[in-house]
């Protein structure tokens, strides 16, 4: 039985910052504040041949530099991802493709930043997913933007923040509130652009299946002591089946709850099917 995938993304500058240095991409769209919502069957030709890329990027290095870095990073990544057909590839090949795309993105972004006056220190986090039939899912991230998986009424993180306390947070040795109170705890140990040899972390053990929610968000939307808590996200997933409404609600709620940082979210819902794949 054919599954249907619904994707939506939205960004918000928050209530404090003068601008938005986040971007997100859905497929070949790279957007910042506009709402993009797409739905397609898993049997759709473009999904079968190319798969789906969805990611968020949180720029840093001042507003101009941050926004530039996040936008360029996603533009390069999507261009690399959709450069050639990959239909029918296996998990290993697909993961290798994503790794190659991210390495290329890292190199090209670093070059682009070097060429821009005053943007040498700019960089960006990145977090997202790449999906391919029948059920291949690769999760990638660098920095403190996160990918969450919602299923069966629960939400859990598929990524571990690249911060000094990220592993401690994931292992439960420290709470998000405690981490937020520690000076320097939010420093990034990995990011794109800032260093050429940064490695984006890939997770390829996952599969996507009907009923799954995949959420990629920046730390302004959900982070240590910032944005929305996991419980609020879980409640929203339970109550809002429509992906565009969910994204709007979650971003608005995070801005209302915190609003200090830019908040950007991409949500993917896999509906029906039962066997996951298309």
């Amino acid at each position: 039985m054919m599954a249907r995938i619904h994707v939506a993304g939205l960004g918000h500058r928050g209530t404090v910052k003068p601008g938005n240095d986040d971007h997100y991409c859905i497929g070949q769209w790279v957007e910042q504040s506009a709402l993009v919502a797409v739905s397609f069957d898993t049997g759709a030709a473009f999904f079968r041949d190319y798969g789906l890329l969805a990611a968020v990027a949180d720029g840093m290095g001042g507003y101009a530099g941050g926004a530039f870095a996040s936008r360029v990073a996603l533009e390069i990544l999507q261009a690399q991802f959709y450069a050639e057909r990959r239909g029918g590839c296996n998990r290993e090949e697909f993961t290798g493709h994503i790794r190659h795309c991210l390495v290329q993105t890292q190199g090209l972004l670093a070059g682009a930043l070097r060429r821009q006056q005053g943007l040498e220190d700019a960089g960006t986090t990145i977090a997202g997913v790449a999906m391919m039939p029948p059920d291949l899912l690769v999760v990638f991230h660098a920095g403190d933007s996160r990918v969450l998986l919602g299923c069966g009424g629960f939400v859990r993180a598929l990524t571990v923040d690249h911060t000094p306390l990220g592993a401690d947070l994931a292992a439960g040795r420290i709470t998000e509130q405690e981490a937020a109170a520690i000076p320097g705890a939010s420093r990034l140990t990995r990011s794109l652009g800032a260093t050429v040899d940064c490695e984006v972390e890939l997770g390829s053990e996952q599969s996507w299946a009907a009923g799954d929610w995949l959420l990629a968000g920046t730390d302004g939307w959900h982070g240590p002591g910032r944005g929305l808590g996991r419980a609020s996200i879980r409640q929203a997933l339970d109550r809002e089946p429509e992906v565009a409404s969910l994204v709007s609600r979650l971003v608005a709620a995070s801005v209302e709850a915190d609003g200090v940082d830019n908040a950007t979210l991409v949500a993917i819902r896999v509906e029906g099917g039962g066997d996951g794949g298309g």
């Binding site: 629960f154 859990r156 994931a170 292992a171 439960g172 996991r230």
Partner: peptide, 14 residues
Amino acid sequence: ATEDLMSGDILLSW
């Protein structure tokens, strides 16, 4: 226990 199992990796780490 379900919450711990499904919502994070703390239980699994232990």
